[in-house]
Amino acid sequence: MSLRTAAPPVPLGQPDVATPARPQPGREGWARALRKDWRLYSLAVLPLLFFLIFKYVPMAGAVIAFRRFQPGGSIFGEEWVGLYYVERFIQDPKFWDTFANTAIIGALTLVVVFPLPVVLALMLNEVRVRWFKKAVQTVSYLPHFMSVVIVAGFVFELTSLDGTVNKIVEALGGDPVSFMQRAEWFRTIYVSSEVWQTVGWGTILYLAALTTIDEQLYEASRIDGANRWKQTWHITLPGIRPTMMVLLILNIGQFMAVGFEKVFLLYNPLTYPTADVLSTYVYRVGLTSGQLSYATAIGLFEALIGLVLVFAANAISRRITGSSLW
């Protein structure tokens, strides 16, 4: 949604679509534009430099995935080595382990976290007592504002041997589990913490979409004898479908970008078998072991998968539902 009005990049030297009033093409047009609007351009200079230096130089810097990098040398590497690092990660079993972990955690997060805000929004939508609705909304948005370090702290507190979760386990007759040391629990814990932090905030856009549904539709359906459940199924859900699709596309695009910071804070060598994802592997290979080119190659691969996923999800959504990001 937020991307929809993005104008396609205009090639240099051609008339800007937004200014049909100025017909001169080419250099002359630019000189004129600069002379006339130089104050406006001056406002854009520093931000432009920011994007070039801090966003586009690192994009170009990813070229060291194909070049040998020497510490202290150029950040763009020293000499071409072709696909050496790509071949290396393809033959690296650890790469495939982390790849699988990333896909599994990403899929679990998508499947669990994506539908819940819809459910919560529908539940909130049925509440008539306004102060109660406001209170639940206020409380459920709060976790969104917490630093990931705080969230990790909560996870450690609640899952520790003397934490609340283990007390419940004991009350139910089980033995306490040191959850954070056990690889088989990592995914559950990760996804649960995501639910806690994101579901409330995720309802905002749905609640907004719900208020735009035409009230007459509900009236008409009531005349036709539809009960509340049928109204929800046949009017409310289709009404928020475009919002759902856009958010689904965005979520799929971030599918492989499993929250690096949270995994990094929560995992430890004991839980690596399930917790180690591509981005944490990149961190350890690159910054702990110092294999910068190799780590960049893996990072580049991950970024490209993300890009492909967004484009694919967008194309599929446009084909099936007609709503898409661009």
Partner: peptide, 26 residues
């Protein structure tokens, strides 16, 4: 709207939402 090259600048910002250089180059 009269800013010539506006589309290019907006596009340049949007691209960074979809693709970033990554940890190591940064």
């Amino acid at each position: 709207p009269q800013l010539k090259g506006r589309g290019l600048l907006v596009g340049m910002a949007l691209v960074t939402m979809l693709y970033a250089g990554g940890l190591i180059p940064n």
